[in-house]
């Protein structure tokens, strides 16, 4: 979103203009929901947390000074909401969870194999530490830059890159056989 339009939208929300905040929700809901949903796989819980994010945005908007971009501020809120949710604990998923696995076809079927790899990828991501999970979730969403993540997570740019590479290395190790 262009900075001028972003400022204008913020001002309209601050003035309490009818429909302005709804416009903001519409504009950012996909990004917020996707980031949360990729970190917390339960859909209803993810929706609840995404609503929490917008509730916080609504409360905080009068105090938003505009030093950072609105999107960066929103990422920061998402990070905080997800971090606070960590305390509730996430179910550990085993990569060898036979109930959830797609049965291996006798004949090598590329499509089925891809589905299985994707399934195992999701499970492998669920095994990562929460910080890594969030980085992977956000980095592979279109439009989210390293700089945004660094600012949102209050980390140096280099640390964000290093952590992301470590996360991917850990994933590569977890999926060693699948990626051959």
């Amino acid at each position: 979103m262009e900075p001028d339009r972003e400022r204008e939208l913020i001002e309209r929300c601050r003035r309490g203009e009818v429909g302005a905040f709804e416009e903001l929700v519409d504009r950012y809901k996909s990004l917020v929901f996707a980031m949360i949903m990729r970190t917390i796989p339960d859909r209803s819980q993810a929706e609840d947390l995404a609503q929490d994010v917008f509730l916080r945005i609504h409360r905080g908007l009068p105090y938003f000074r505009g030093e950072a971009r609105l999107s960066t501020w929103i990422y920061r809120i998402v990070v905080n909401v997800c971090t606070q949710d960590r305390g509730r604990g996430t179910a550990q998923v085993s990569l060898d969870d036979t109930n959830a696995r797609v049965s291996t076809p006798v004949v090598a079927d590329r499509h089925a194999h891809d589905l299985e790899v994707r399934d195992r990828l999701e499970k492998a991501i669920a095994q990562l530490p929460a910080q890594y999970r969030l980085l992977i979730a956000a980095h592979y969403l279109r439009g989210v830059q390293y700089e945004d993540l660094a600012e949102a997570m209050n980390l140096p740019l280099g640390t964000v890159k290093t952590q992301l590479h470590r996360a991917k290395k850990q994933l590569r190790m977890l999926l060693e056989t699948d990626l051959r």
């Binding site: 905040f21 929901f33 996707a34 994707r118 999926l175």
Partner: peptide
């Protein structure tokens, strides 16, 4: 393997919010 993983991560489905998300959020 790292290249394949990167491609898989880029191809991950982007979850979309439910259709009534905005309405429910505004009500909340």
């Amino acid at each position: 393997a790292a290249r394949r993983l990167d491609a898989l991560l880029r191809q991950r489905l982007v979850p979309t919010p439910p259709p009534q998300f905005t309405t429910r959020t505004m009500a909340r």
